[in-house]
Design a protein around this nucleic acid. Structure first.
Length: 423
RNA sequence: GGAGAGGUGGGUGAGUGGCUGAAACCAACAGUUUGCUAAACUGUCGUACGGGAAACUGUACCGGGGGUUCGAAUCCCCCCCUCUCCGCCA
């Protein structure tokens, strides 16, 4: 949620910046300001009315105590009017606030000044690319065929037990999952991230805090009996640790890492996008989250990008980094880097990490703040990124590293798998 | 799931209708003292939204919501949560 102060300060600039995200703010922004004016006006009247009622109540108390019951009763009669007025104003204030909130949550975050508008994912900016793209023989297999050949992932069994999009890993496949998770967690804790094991279900308040609710509730699995959502990413529970928290400036930056299963309904997905491991209802991911000082958050973002690049190097996967254009940038993000690995048999780039700076957008809704040097309370910045999501890493690794000897495991991972080849 | 107890500021905890936005203590922060550390002393010390250049000031908030009352942390109703015991159970 954008800060009202930002909108009020320079509405024209806000509208202009929103247009980079192809969001037309020409109507909603003035409406927000008008509603906020109304809110202030109403609150002022309400406060005045309540102040009067308070002082009358005090007076009545004093009159009773000094035995002037008759005067007190006279005053009492007068309070009726004030009470009704306050009630009316209170109701009006409530509804104005609601209207205002309803509009505010519809406005996306402002993109960083370096973000180009673009029209689609085609216009994302390639920042860099590295790693050698291997040449495979003609009979090279896609990962879903390799999964069968080596009997390491059983999609059919997953379907039998749960449904499409719930793969079952076995043998060396299962071991590879465990190896990757441990590898990623070890690297992150080594880089100063505090390991968190979060709940996998969250309440609605947490969903609102990170912005999955109210809009994207159709993307989460929901358990109505207990009013809980299965997390689509560890970002949700981990970031919500800091909901309604006022930190010390010296606490920043906070660095957390969490492994979790992730659950996504992926309603409306179809075709080659969902084949094999490309898009799943349940998958494993290690997520890094940072709570940053506003003046340092972009340094942090670069650091996170470097960190994830390092992981991909260790995994010996060819990758590229994209800066998302306005058209592709998410609702909550100010700047996002997508990290993609090349999956040779599929001949396509697969997104394995998305690293974003949300600036104060999430923090505003979370009420995640810190006390600065001057003693003033101000919103912190939140950032997060995958480090990394497993399935597409596995897909690329299977495809790129296939050979006659089997699937080669990158050296950095061998201590975790205990084997050099999947055979 | 059943029975009971309880939810007050960063923490402990007082407060059963007006003088309580809330005692006291601890923690924290600033200062004095000190050769340093510790101790002692002094001061500051909730959040949000308004008004004001500022000093300051109005309003709301004692788990959440509703009600009674001129007036509610305090009384009533509903909900949520925590703890203890029982049941079930990885």
């Amino acid at each position: 949620m954008l800060q009202l102060s930002v909108i009020r300060e320079n509405p024209e600039a806000v509208i202009q910046r929103l247009s980079i995200k192809h969001f037309d703010g020409r109507e909603i922004i003035p409406n927000i300001i008008a509603l906020d004016d109304k809110r202030k006006e109403t609150q002022k009247h309400l406060d005045e009315s309540l102040a009067q009622a308070n002082s009358m109540a005090k007076e009545i108390g004093l009159l009773f105590q000094s035995g002037k019951a008759e005067q007190a009763n006279n005053l009492k009669a007068k309070t009726m009017e004030l009470k009704n007025l306050s009630k009316e104003l209170g109701t009006s204030l409530e509804s104005t606030k609601e209207e205002l909130e309803d509009l505010l949550v519809k406005v996306p975050n402002l993109p960083h000044s370096s973000v180009p508008a673009g029209n689609s994912a085609e216009d994302n900016v390639k920042m860099m690319q590295e790693g050698k793209i291997p040449q495979l023989s003609k009979d090279a297999l896609a990962h879903w065929d390799l999964a069968v050949k080596y009997d390491i992932i059983d999609f059919a069994l997953g379907t039998k037990i749960s449904g499409a999009g719930f793969p079952l890993y076995k043998g060396q496949g299962a071991r590879l999952q465990r190896a990757l998770i441990n590898f990623f967690l070890d690297k992150a804790t080594g880089a100063g991230y505090l390991e968190i094991q979060p709940p996998l279900m969250v309440n609605p308040a947490s969903g609102f805090g990170t912005g999955q609710l109210p809009d994207k509730d159709g993307q989460m699995y929901y358990v109505p009996l207990d009013d809980l959502y299965l997390i689509p990413t560890a970002e949700v529970p981990v970031t919500n640790i800091y909901r309604d928290v006022i930190l010390k400036e010296s606490d920043l930056p906070l660095k957390n890492v969490a492994y979790s299963g992730c659950f996504r309904r992926e309603a409306g997905s179809y075709g080659k996008d969902v084949r094999g491991l490309n898009r799943l209802h349940q998958f494993d991911k290690v997520e890094i989250v940072r709570i940053a000082h506003p003046e340092k958050s972009y340094e942090d973002l670069e650091e996170m990008r470097d960190y994830v690049s390092g992981l991909l190097r260790l995994l010996e996967l060819p990758f590229r980094v994209l800066k998302l254009c306005g058209a592709d940038l998410s609702f909550t993000s100010a700047l996002t880097y997508d990290m993609e690995v090349f999956s040779v048999a599929q001949q396509r780039w697969l997104e394995v990490s998305s690293i974003s700076n949300f600036e104060a957008f999430q923090a505003n809704r979370l009420k995640l703040r810190f006390r600065n040097e001057a003693g003033k309370i101000q919103l912190a910045h939140t950032l997060n990124g995958s480090a990394l999501a497993l399935p597409r890493i596995v897909a690329a690794m299977l495809e790129n590293n296939q050979s006659e000897k089997g699937i080669r495991i990158p050296a950095a991972l061998v201590p975790y798998t205990g084997f050099e080849y999947i055979t």
